[in-house]
Write a protein that binds this DNA or RNA. Structure first.
Lengths: 217, 217
DNA sequence: CAAAAACAGGGTATAATCAGCTTTTTTAAC
DNA sequence: GTTAAAAAAGCTGATTATACCCTGTTTTTG
């Protein structure tokens, strides 16, 4: 009397975990495990030999092709397939990384089976499944995407203008011209900024300024 | 017999809404409205004349100083105060915008009173309150923050490595050394890339590669 | 007025840019 | 397998730009 089962695949390099999980999920009457794979390359091989799963449970750390790469590949080649990250890490970086790669949710391996099944059914229906673990990270990520300043370097208006003009094919002589200053003054600016940014080349200058968010491209 | 009430403030330019809401929330035994304000400037004036609220309910569209600005100001001057956005818009932009500005949650004005009270108590306790409305936007935002490619330029592995090494103070000679190639081969790479990216300087190369997302800094 | 900051000059060594050419390695066709 | 074509790697030599000196003048500012 149950509705149609959800077809999934499991990608994880630990065989015991993979097969134990498959058995566990199969025991429930809601989920059908189509195939499993021990890394991304194995998954690519097997996905064409099987029916397309609705959801893929994806580990992160795997040899040959990890969870990030595998998720990106899935989203490029089978965008309708949902990926649910399943990992032991609860740090920000892997969570944000998997979501950026295209995962629609993130579950910890220490979750209860019932919660995982909820997540799978949730993600199958709505394309994503956000729990408290993930929502906080998401929010913090979006809010921290701009500051993160190191020891901010002070630059005056002219130096800033100069830095912006450095992001071009203009020579210093031409920059001096544009700014209506002597090339030697530009020399002074450059040397001052070299010191401030601890670099020795125009390229280094531009990159340092970009990193500090002083200029945009 | 209720625990301590949560002290809040309401910032919204519609007087009837503001006062009606205040009355509604005060009727509950969980929330105490310290003050209200009709825009960000009014809020700034009143916040120093009152006890500091735990949570501020913040509208977005307001004259003189809108919700984005007001939220940023709060987060800069009273970072411990939580902001719960309260708006009629359920589009991506305002939601993402308010969260980026520092709001810890986002509720629709068409919510039920009980849900709003839940959100307020939630945000007071945990600093954020994520509902289904917000989580999907967050996820989509984070996933769409990268692509947007123009006409992609093809570069091979060596050229890519070279581009990465260009983002440094290394001279071409040193790059050649690192890559175990003759400096003249590096010359060839450079010239080929100059053509591909239509530039004439190392700086231009680096910037073009960054724009195309071929390299990261 | 004195000190600091900004601007400007001359000069040199090194690195970057550019054009034209040879050799080696790959690729693909025969 | 041979071989022609194409691609990648390597080279010479010259010009221009960049990086780094030291020094002096003007302007701002306390």
């Amino acid at each position: 009397m149950h509705p149609e089962k959800i077809n999934i695949a499991i990608v994880d390099d630990h065989t015991l975990f993979r097969q134990g999980l498959a058995s566990l999920l199969t025991d429930s009457d809601k989920i059908n495990v189509l195939f499993d794979a021990e890394n991304g390359q194995d998954m690519i091989k097997k996905i064409s030999l099987n029916p397309i799963p609705e959801v893929i449970l994806m580990d992160i750390t795997m040899p040959l092709m990890d969870g990030y790469e595998s998720t990106k590949w899935i989203k490029q080649n089978y965008p309708e397939v949902k990926v649910l990250a399943l990992s032991m890490f609860e740090e920000d970086k892997p969570i944000i990384g998997m979501l950026k790669s295209g995962a629609g949710g993130y579950m910890l391996k220490q979750s209860k089976a019932g919660d995982l099944i909820d997540a799978i059914t949730g993600i199958a229906k709505q394309s994503f499944y956000i729990n408290e673990l993930v929502s906080g990270k998401l929010l913090r990520n979006i809010q921290n995407n701009q500051p993160l300043k190191t020891q901010q370097v002070e630059v005056n208006t002219n130096e800033l203008k100069f830095l912006e003009l450095c992001c071009s094919d203009l020579t210093y002589k031409q920059i001096a011209d544009v700014m209506n200053l002597s090339p030697h003054t530009i020399d002074n600016y450059r040397e001052a900024l070299f010191q401030k940014f601890d670099t020795k080349s125009r390229t280094g200058l531009v990159i340092a300024a970009l990193k500090q968010d002083l200029i945009k491209i």
